[in-house]
Simulated scan of single mutants.
Amino acid sequence: MSSEQPRRLICCIGTGGTIASEPTEGGLAPTRQDTFFRRIRSHPSLTSPTHFDSSTVSFHSPVHTELVGKNIRYPRLITPELDDEGTSVEYEILDLDRHLDSSEMTPSEWNIIASLVHENWDNYDGFIILSGTDTLAYTAAILSFLFLDAGKPIIVTGAQIPLSRPRSDGWRNIFDSLFVTGTLDFAGVGIVFNHQLLRGARATKSSPNLFGAFTTPCVPPLVNFNVKITYDSSHPLTPRSLTPPPPLIPLLTSPSVLSIHIYPGMTGSLLEAQIDAVPTCKAVIISAYGSGNLPINEHSGVLLSLKRMVEKEILVVVISQCGIPNVYPLYTQGRTLLSIGVLPGYDLMHEAAFAKLIWLVSRPELSFKERQELFETPVVGEMSK
């Protein structure tokens, strides 16, 4: 893409989180205000000095916003040159009506984010979701399924340190996100963090302290932004296309997917008590030992409880508690579980398993059998079989 071609226009959707947090009497909080925009407008790596006259536009200059429904759109910005070809990018920040800590993220917020991307699809060349880090990988995973095969980039990013604080990593994460969405021939959902582009349905948050907060334990990063930009040769980037997003699937907002961690002493009655407490439950993630091992001896009652869940047409999926997971029905125990309809999660991360199940149970046109079959089918590169 040369500098003579039209600049790509990117929509940045602000949801709050650490990256947008400002000091308050109660500590740092992601309250919605235009200070976040002012910081970005004033940063030389994110706003071209030729876009604003620095003698007339300062941090404290007025900000003229536009109300879009309950959300706020800020004035368009233009980056400096982002690459050796002189490419710059235009972008707009669209702030959700309520900023939140990402630990408060629910399927309701995912519906809002997905709807905004969907309805603005034809207006922009790419999208950046500015998110808190706690549930950032979950957001990237669900967007991967909701925007399956769509021909534009959707990047999810955030920060470990707010832009309002010294040493914030948010500046570079935003810059790299604009680089990906504005200059690369890339389509799909990814996470940009700590100089890497990661696959959106493969990531997990592995550290609350390191700048490299996110990893994809089972696959390499798609791109490493070092002195030299390097790409994963085994998995070339999916090029942009004119493919529109699939019809929007409204996610169920009632509790529909439960997650249960297996521990020593787990019994079938303990499993069933958790399921019975949630009448709207349609799927269960069982985080098991090692390669998917469970206490399925007759005394524990676990196997009988799992069988009852499947008979109620509740999707039951077994993933591994290990940091580098792999659940495969190779041994006797795994085949026993498979025989009663319990599904192996292979190398799915918990975030992707959770997102995929919500995506499946939110589709009323699918039968229980079809949901089972589709769960075991790699859809967005979320797992290897």
Score class of each variant (00 low, 15 high):
residue 312 K to H: 02
residue 42 S to F: 00
residue 110 W to N: 09
residue 225 F to G: 08
residue 19 I to G: 04
residue 221 P to M: 10
residue 80 P to I: 05
residue 228 K to D: 14
residue 354 F to G: 03
residue 20 A to V: 11
residue 152 K to C: 09
residue 213 A to L: 02
residue 206 S to G: 14
residue 373 E to R: 15
residue 168 S to A: 06
residue 378 P to T: 01
residue 149 D to I: 02
residue 328 Y to V: 15
residue 161 I to H: 02
residue 310 V to K: 07
residue 78 I to G: 10
residue 86 G to T: 06
residue 211 F to W: 11
residue 31 T to A: 13
residue 347 D to M: 01
residue 17 G to R: 04
residue 316 V to Q: 06
residue 225 F to W: 06
residue 158 G to Y: 09
residue 340 I to R: 03
residue 171 W to M: 08
residue 27 G to A: 07
residue 165 R to T: 09
residue 211 F to T: 07
residue 233 S to C: 13
residue 364 P to G: 01
residue 133 T to E: 08
residue 188 G to P: 04
residue 300 S to T: 13
residue 129 I to L: 00
residue 330 L to F: 11
residue 209 N to E: 12
residue 196 Q to D: 07
residue 52 F to I: 05
residue 289 Y to K: 03
residue 178 L to Y: 08
residue 367 S to H: 10
residue 130 L to K: 05
residue 227 V to A: 15
residue 109 E to L: 13
residue 53 D to N: 14
residue 371 R to I: 07
residue 330 L to A: 15
residue 272 E to C: 11
residue 219 V to R: 13
residue 55 S to V: 05
residue 3 S to K: 15
residue 11 C to T: 00
residue 272 E to T: 15
residue 13 I to Q: 05
residue 240 R to A: 02
residue 26 G to V: 11
residue 33 Q to K: 15
residue 251 L to T: 03
residue 322 C to L: 12
residue 166 P to G: 11
residue 8 R to T: 03
residue 307 K to R: 15
